[in-house]
Design a protein around this nucleic acid. Sequence first.
DNA 1: GAAAATTCATTCGTATGCAAATGATATCAA
DNA 2: TTGATATCATTTGCATACGAATGAATTTTC
Lengths: 153, 153
Amino acid sequence: MSAEDNLLKPVEAEEPDDQDYLLQEQVGFILRKAHQRHVSIFAARIGDLTPPQFAALAKLRDVGETSQNQLGTLIAMDAATVKGVIDRLKARGLVELSKHEVDKRRLLVNLTAAGRDAIERLIPLAREITQETLAPLSAKEIATFMKLLAKLA
Amino acid sequence: MSAEDNLLKPVEAEEPDDQDYLLQEQVGFILRKAHQRHVSIFAARIGDLTPPQFAALAKLRDVGETSQNQLGTLIAMDAATVKGVIDRLKARGLVELSKHEVDKRRLLVNLTAAGRDAIERLIPLAREITQETLAPLSAKEIATFMKLLAKLA
DNA sequence: GAAAATTCATTCGTATGCAAATGATATCAA
DNA sequence: TTGATATCATTTGCATACGAATGAATTTTC
């Protein structure tokens, strides 16, 4: 095949070879950047709480009291990570911890009154964060994107 | 409006109110999970290098010698983060550092022979990682998804 | 019912990721 | 040319994120 043929060949048919690995076109790299952008938007709107901390409060609002590990499963954090998040929320008086009466291994987590106030107050801001993150897309594109993204996660 | 009317109302017309904020349907949350999944796939295939470290090597392969800061811009890392990544690559002999002759502020980074060998060897694995990450989608869905994801990043 | 396997939580070590402060050097502007 | 700005790099502090090891408590299995 001559070099000229490449001018006629559609891009989709390109055989990737080691000469042209383009980092900026790989899912992982773009996924990382999209995530960074979202975190940045989040920080601009909710400065005093991180996305993982918000996730913990929002999920506790949904399900009520649960064990630390169970909460971690619900918000996709491993045991070590969720411990740090809960520790910091506890230090700020947004959650309270107690021991499970029957199963002595479990550490129960629940919202305090202040924690409930905080999450109720922040939810409208979180809706705006979602909107701003998706702002580059049209309504139809958003529907498509969310469907596909969910398949990948 | 009676409760029965809700049965007839299409889902898309639901007015979101604070009662039903669903964390698991928010872009940020799913984006974080998708990113986690990708990192996990990456680690399973390339155990001895992280995605940021790989990104640094791959970009150095593209552009050749650059300043640490410039490299950071190219791979979307701030100055503090890129320094850590480069330090670790240097400690493993994959990159080498030198001072810019003219502009004494700049720290030049380049691949060593070992670094070039490593990235050439890893690129085929990186292609597989991209494929596996996108495996839940069809070819057409991949094209759509990548287009929309790029808009968000 | 005792041993084995599992689950829950903690701790340690390593690696991003970013804000803010600092110091050195370069560039711009009056 | 010098004084103000801007850029490059480093450091510190804080917050995820996860593997691996450990200990305590529970469940399973024989």
